[in-house]
Nucleic acid binder design. Structure first.
Length: 423
RNA sequence: GGACGGGUGGCAGAGUGGUUGAUUGCGGCGGUCUUGAAAACCGCUUUACCGAGAGGUAACGGGGGUUCGAAUCCCUCCCCGUCCGCCA
């Protein structure tokens, strides 16, 4: 959510920055400005009336306390109260409309956000490692998994439908080992506190992090209970401190959490949704930071490194791209994606997205801190995948595949997995 | 799921229709005293919105109602606790 004062005071700047998204969102600025003017006019009128009513009521109370008559003062009071009630209704209506508009308006991209319309315009800012070269035709993870009996998509379809998978044997163990390994890395070496949150969240949390109201159709919900399945641990974890005013000393807050993630992913098809690549349910370790505004861009770089280190330890070639204005997520001001090379699919797969939301989420969820001068102001929030498991496994399988059909795991996992190979 | 009891300021806890945004205690901040500290004493200590300012408005879990006026009365929803039931 943008600061209404910014829209009020610098509408041209807001329009210019929103236009960087090439989504037409800048058209909302005028609509909000008009509503803001109406809102303030009604407030001025109704608060004046309330002030008069309060003064009169006080006098009535004082007279009655002394046992005196107050009929003269009561005359016309009913009409005044009715007028106030009518204005209050108008005000509530317009405030609700304003809130709905503000909630569906995306964040301002960072000043230095790369120009571009879509994914093809995202600049590569960092690249690491060499794609493996095989002396045999490379297979994709579905073929490799079938050979080793790792993934049962048919059984998953039988019990849950398309877009789900059953992990068997070594695949299930690899999943479990990876989760522990990732959480240990981030908690022991990167200074995050481990959180195990609920997977079902209230609507208000989904609104706080920006999934709602705009992206309802992407989410799984339990209508009868008013709950949503978290599409990422970002939602429960960032909302941990919603509606709080944190003392300055509490910041920065660094949380790492594993959760399964549930997404509809409607309408996706093709090579990049085969096998494990695009699922309704997948595992992910997420990093979340709550920080003071001055440090958030520095922290974004740190966060990105925390995710990149994962891929380097696992010896997986990857590249880091910065999202251009047209590809930037709804709430992000700046975002890096980490894409790992998948040698069998022959594609770069997104395994992490590291974003600075500035005050966008904090304002939605009422997350503030008391600054050095004692003033309350919204925190900055960031999050990044550290990393998504399903695609990480795709890369491990496809890059580690051997001529005999087995998969060699990177040394970092040997001890925890108890073997050098998936076989 | 059932029964009962509760939701008031950072915490505890008063307040059952009228100058109550709210007694009091604790905690916190500032000060006096002290070589220093403690104790004692004094003052301050919620949040949001409107307003250039003076100032004003709102909030006692959420929403609605009664009334000139609601923390206080009524309705409704939510949440918490205890016990029972069920259960990993």
């Amino acid at each position: 959510m943008l600061d209404i004062r910014l829209i009020r005071e610098q509408p041209d700047e807001v329009r210019r920055r929103l236009a960087m998204r090439r989504s037409g969102a800048e058209a909302m600025v005028d609509q909000i400005a008009v509503g803001d003017g109406r809102r303030r006019a009604i407030i001025a009128e109704v608060e004046q009336l309330k002030s008069e009513r309060n003064a009169a009521s006080k006098q009535i109370g004082a007279r009655k306390a002394k046992g005196e008559a107050a009929e003269d003062l009561l005359a016309g009071m009913k009409e005044m109260s009715d007028r106030i009630a009518a204005l209050d209704r108008d005000l509530a209506e317009i405030e609700e409309a304003q809130r709905a508009l503000l909630l569906s308006m995306p964040n301002l991209p960072h000043e230095a956000c790369p120009a571009g319309a879509g994914a093809e315009d995202n600049p590569v800012v960092h690249q690491w490692g060499q794609p493996p070269v095989f002396a045999f035709p490379a297979r994709d993870h579905v073929a490799i998994g079938n050979g080793l009996g790792l993934y049962d998509f048919e059984a998953a379809a039988k019990i849950s439908g398309a877009g789900f998978v059953v992990f068997r044997g070594a695949a299930a163990r690899l999943q479990r080992v990876l989760l522990g390994w990732l959480l240990d890395l981030h908690t022991r070496e990167h200074g995050y506190t481990e959180i195990a949150p609920p997977y079902l969240v209230r609507e208000g949390c989904m609104e706080g992090t920006g999934q709602l109201p705009k992206f309802r159709e992407d989410m799984f919900g339990l209508e009868s209970d008013g709950l949503f399945l978290a599409p990422t641990a970002e939602v429960p974890v960032t909302n941990l401190h919603r509606e709080e005013i944190l003392p300055l000393e509490a910041l920065p807050i660094r949380y790492a959490a594993y959760t399964p993630c549930f997404r509809r992913e409607a309408g996706s098809a093709g090579k990049l949704s085969r096998g494990l690549i695009r699922m309704h349910q997948f595992d992910k370790v997420e990093l979340v930071q709550i920080v003071v505004p001055e440090s958030s861009y520095h922290v974004l770089e740190e966060l990105r490194r925390h995710a990149e280190v994962v891929l380097e330890r696992l010896e997986l070639p990857y590249r880091t791209i910065e999202l251009c204005g047209g590809d930037l997520g709804f709430g992000a001001a700046k975002c890096y994606d980490l894409e790992v090379w998948a040698a069998g699919t022959g594609a770069w797969l997104e395994v992490s997205s590291c974003s600075n939301f500035e005050a966008f989420q904090a304002r939605r969820m009422g997350l503030r801190f008391k600054d050095a001068s004692g003033k309350n102001q919204p925190c900055h929030t960031l999050n990044g995948s550290g990393v998504a498991l399903a695609r990480l496994v795709v890369a491990l399988l496809e890059n580690g595949q051997q001529a005999d059909g087995s998969v060699r795991l990177p040394p970092a996992l040997h001890a925890a997995f108890g073997d050098e190979f998936l076989r």
